[in-house]
C-alpha cells in the first residue's frame, strides 16, 4: 500500500543531504589532489573517477550489488561487523555518492586548475603551509566553481534512480526515494502521486540551475575584472 507523500520526500531529503556532504568533501579532496598530481597514473585515476558518469546507472548498480552482496568482497567485509548494506537506507546514500562524485570531481578539478599556480607559489614564499594555502588561496579563488559543482552534484543525487533501485531496492518506508516512487506509482497506475512528486523534483532542479547560473556569472565577472589591470 502507498505511504504518505512525505515519506519518499523525507527519504530523498535525508539521502540528498548526506550524500552531498560526503560527495563534497570526497570530491574536493580528490580534485585538489589530482589538480596537483603529475604522476604516470594521472589518466588512469582520472578515468576511474569519471567512470560512473559514463556507465549506465543500472550497470554501476549491478556491480555495486555484486560487490556489496553476501558473496561480494564488500559484503563479506561488512558481515564481519554483522552489517548488511544492500537494501538499507545507507545503500541509497552509497549509490547517490558514487553517481554524483564524478560531477563534483570534474567540475571542482577544473576550478582548482584555473587558480593561477603563481599565487600558491607566492603564498609558499610568504611562509604559508599547504593546508593554509588551500583554505586561504586555492579554495576561495575556486569557490564559484566548487559551489557550482556542489549544486550539480546535489541535483544528481536527487535524480538518482537506476543505481539506487539496484542497490537499495524499493522498500517503501526505508529506501524509496522520490524518483523510485515516481516509477512505481506509474506502474501501479497512481498518476496523481507521480505528478506531484515530479513537480517537486522539477521545482527543485530549477532552483539548482538558477543557483549554478548565478555562481557562474559571478565567477566570470571576477575573472574578467582580474585580467583588467587598471
Amino acid at each position: 500500500m502507498n505511504t504518505s507523500l512525505w515519506t519518499p520526500i523525507w527519504i530523498s531529503i535525508k539521502t540528498v543531504c548526506t550524500a552531498t556532504v560526503i560527495t563534497f568533501f570526497l570530491g574536493i579532496a580528490a580534485a585538489h589532489w589530482m589538480s596537483r598530481y603529475k604522476g604516470k597514473l594521472k589518466a588512469v585515476i582520472d578515468g576511474i573517477f569519471i567512470l560512473p558518469m559514463v556507465m549506465p546507472p543500472t550497470v554501476v548498480g549491478y556491480w555495486l550489488l555484486t560487490f556489496f552482496g553476501i558473496n561480494g568482497l564488500g559484503g563479506k567485509f561488512f558481515a564481519l561487523f554483522n552489517y548488511k548494506l544492500v537494501f538499507t537506507w545507507q545503500a541509497t546514500v552509497v549509490a547517490a555518492v558514487i553517481m554524483s562524485f564524478p560531477l563534483m570531481y570534474m567540475t571542482a578539478k577544473g576550478a582548482f586548475e584555473q587558480v593561477e599556480p603563481n599565487l600558491q607559489s607566492a603564498a609558499r614564499t610568504l611562509g604559508a603551509g599547504e593546508w593554509r594555502i588551500f583554505w586561504t588561496v586555492t579554495l576561495p579563488l575556486a569557490w564559484p566553481g566548487v559551489a557550482a559543482a556542489t549544486v550539480l552534484a546535489l541535483a544528481r543525487t536527487l535524480g538518482e534512480f537506476g543505481t539506487t533501485l539496484m542497490l537499495a531496492g524499493n522498500i517503501r518506508t526505508k529506501t524509496t526515494t522520490i524518483p523510485v516512487d515516481i516509477y512505481f506509482s506509474i506502474i501501479s497506475g497512481d498518476n496523481h502521486r507521480a505528478q506531484v512528486l515530479a513537480l517537486v523534483v522539477m521545482g527543485f532542479s530549477f532552483v539548482a540551475l538558477a543557483l549554478v547560473g548565478f555562481w557562474k556569472n559571478r565567477s566570470n565577472r571576477t575573472k574578467g575584472l582580474m585580467t583588467t589591470d587598471g
Binding site: E116, N118, L119, S121, A122, R124, T125, G127, A128, G129
Partner: peptide, 16 residues
C-alpha cells in the same frame, strides 16, 4: 620555501 626567508616578486606580481 616557507622556511627559506627568500622574498619573491613575481612577473605578474601574483597578488591575491
Amino acid at each position: 620555501p616557507q622556511k627559506r626567508r627568500v622574498g619573491f616578486v613575481f612577473q605578474n606580481y601574483a597578488l591575491f
